[in-house]
Amino acid sequence: MKLVKVHVTLKEGVLDPQGKAVQGSLNTLGYDFVEEVRVGKYLELTVKDDANIEQQIEDMCNKLLANPVIENYEYTVEEGVTQ
């Protein structure tokens, strides 16, 4: 088994109103040094071993997990726990 960790983030240049609101709140709490916040998503996929795993993950990201119009993705593949 493998554990795939996928991070999905908004592309540079795409406005992130949610991130802006979080940044405003952090500033209100006194964390004045926070200049920008970008909110993204984190997904964990437990998958069976597959020779072609990286290509498959990229396909999944482009087809569903991320929207390539507005989002970038990054992933890592780690050894998963065999049950």
């Binding site: 406005l15 949610q18 929207n67």
Partner: peptide, 16 residues
């Protein structure tokens, strides 16, 4: 849009 039948995407409203 998500199907790719139309170009672009929709984000959260500017004022959330």
């Amino acid at each position: 849009l998500e199907s790719g039948l139309l170009p672009g995407a929709l984000l959260r409203n500017e004022k959330l």
